[in-house]
């Protein structure tokens, strides 16, 4: 099995909107993939289908060759695009909670990241700033030893210095066989760490290639190509 994620003719139709229409996509193990598209293009829908928060209207989605279920959730670490932390808990309690819930949670990794980002572990989540909440959420998600990380807008609310630290942390911590899918608008910031990019628009995959190929064939960065493809 070379592919960690496979979609075949995958469609999701909400009451009066088509979110994904017949998506065919294969993502290999050991890659860092950027899922890029304008607002409302279907990025979050795709990610939610991959972790079972939504079910497809048509088509199939497989993770590590298996349909979405308990076995796939064990190996998928998901960062939602909104705050999912429990406000009354302290950072420490949140760590214990994750540690208890996920057998692949590595507390040492979380300790290291909390320390380098100078986060006070005794504080309650609800007293933290928006950016710090995002940092804690990402630390929790990246401290799992998962096979597939689904990061929905992971760095949107943090300052550029922290952004750099987080991207380096991602590179330093992910295992070579693990795959990371990052959905984001901040292409220029993440481009260097991506191996592949998927452009999505109106629920369709419009481009899927390696970053090196794009730069070689187009003579421009992924960020520039994105601005061209999605010019308003």
């Amino acid at each position: 099995m070379d592919n960690i994620l496979e979609c075949a003719n995958l469609s999701k139709i909400y009451k009066n909107a088509i979110a994904l229409s017949g998506v065919n996509l294969q993502i290999k193990k050991g890659r860092i993939v950027g899922l890029l598209g304008p607002n409302g293009s279907g990025k979050t829908t795709l990610i939610k289908l991959a972790n079972g928060l939504l079910t497809p209207t048509m088509g199939d989605i497989l993770i590590d060759g298996k349909p979405i279920g308990v076995e796939t959730k064990k190996i998928v670490s998901y960062l939602p695009d909104h705050n999912f932390l429990t406000g009354w808990m302290t950072v420490n309690q949140m760590i214990e909670y994750f540690s208890d819930f996920y057998s692949d949670f590595n507390p040492d990794r979380a300790d290291k990241m909390l320390e380098s980002l100078g986060i006070d572990r005794t504080k309650k989540i609800k007293t933290l700033s928006k950016g710090t909440k995002e940092k804690v959420a990402l630390i929790l998600v990246m401290s799992r030893e998962a096979e597939l990380y689904l990061l929905d807008e992971p760095i949107a609310g943090v300052d550029p210095a922290t952004r750099d630290y987080i991207l380096r942390t991602i590179i330093a911590n992910y295992n070579e066989n693990a795959t990371i899918i990052i959905s984001t608008h901040l292409i220029a910031d993440v481009e260097q760490i991506l191996s592949d990019v998927v452009f999505i628009n109106h629920g369709d995959i419009v481009l899927c290639d390696t970053v090196d190929n794009i730069r070689e064939n187009e003579g421009k960065s992924v960020d520039e190509l994105f601005r061209e493809v999605f010019r308003c």
Partner: peptide, 17 residues
């Protein structure tokens, strides 16, 4: 490779290549 990739802030596969 991994350490060089972190220092350079790039994907380890790219550094390997």
């Amino acid at each position: 490779v991994r350490e060089l990739a972190v220092v350079a802030g790039v994907n380890p596969n790219t550094m390997q290549r």
